[in-house]
Design a protein around this nucleic acid. Structure first.
Length: 112
DNA sequence: GATCAGGCTCTAA
DNA sequence: ATTAGAGCCTGAT
């Protein structure tokens, strides 16, 4: 992360902003992959950063982080609720997105 | 600065 | 279809 001095400050902040903006734009009933989000945000190779940002900055924001999955259509997190079920999968299911064995059919639900 | 780790991705086996 | 290894980049120590 070394850039021109003028950018260095807002750089990281903007990256997060862009990422969040893209995620926020994911429509109901649709999902997107980390890589896709990174690309749309203008960050072709920062798929991991997307995950990182979400993990740390989702609490207060009302972002549909559950609509973000990896390129294989799987859920990477293993956050479980009191019933031992995957929270993300539940949110997706309640939006009408089919989740079979932790996997989602990208052909049908991926956002373009 | 040098190092490490991470909700990833791509390709090959 | 699943797994393993290498690549990429950033934020945190």
């Amino acid at each position: 992360m070394k850039r021109r001095k003028e950018d260095s400050v807002k750089q990281s902040d903007e990256l997060a902003q862009q990422i969040l903006a893209v995620i926020d734009a994911i429509p109901y009933g649709r999902v997107a992959t980390y890589g896709q989000i990174a690309r749309l945000a203008g960050l072709p190779k920062h798929a991991r950063l997307v995950g990182y940002v979400l993990k740390h900055l989702d609490a207060a924001a009302d972002l549909p982080w559950h609509r973000v999955i990896n390129s294989q259509g799987k859920i990477s997190l293993s956050k479980l609720d009191e019933n031992g079920l995957n929270m993300q999968a539940q949110k997706l299911l309640s939006e009408g997105i089919a989740v079979a064995a932790g996997k989602i059919d990208l052909k049908k639900y991926q956002w373009h």
